[in-house]
Amino acid sequence: MNIFRLAADISHAVAIVLLLYKIWTSRSCAGLSLKSQSLYVAVFVSRYLDIFRFVSFYNTFMKLFFIIGSSATVYLMAFKFKHTYQKENDSFPVLYLILPCIAMAFVLPYEYNPVEILWTFSIWQESVAIFPQLFMVQKTGEAESITSHYLFALGSYRGLYILNWIYRYVVEDHVDWISIVAGVIQTVLYCDFFYLYITRVIKGRKLDLPA
């Protein structure tokens, strides 16, 4: 564990809590993509099949937290506050995201066994899972400020992991190419959003996109 990875995991956990807080307090999931949230559940479940292999208490706790937190989000959106879900705006064709990730999982896993193939799928799927949400923000031209904070925390997390990978390469000689390449792609996808967040939301304005 190093400071970058800890900061990244905290940022990731904060993102999930922020989203649950927003949905629960506003009793609404307006502006949120159920497709993105469902992809995250798929990501966590397929990645954490090794949850019973003990690495550390921290590791197990965080895995459980991510699976439960993302599942709770999907439950609230798909059932409890379903009447507030704006299905018509959540129209990104997700098969275009899922199929290439399945292909990557079979073409380039570290090893050919079900756990490794699912792990590889989860890494690639996570890198593009935010697409339907960003598409929704783009389509409606706006995002509530708490949704913006959520996206910022979620985007920062993989960016901080890049610092962690650099640190681990230098200090521990540890390299995980699949995570690194997918993580860089994931972070780059947020760049446009980061720019808008810093130039607008931090200055107290709403995230309204130019027409």
Partner: peptide, 10 residues
């Protein structure tokens, strides 16, 4: 030989 990647990250 290929070094095994230890999956200790989240």
């Amino acid at each position: 030989d290929k070094a095994e990647v230890v999956k200790d990250e989240l």
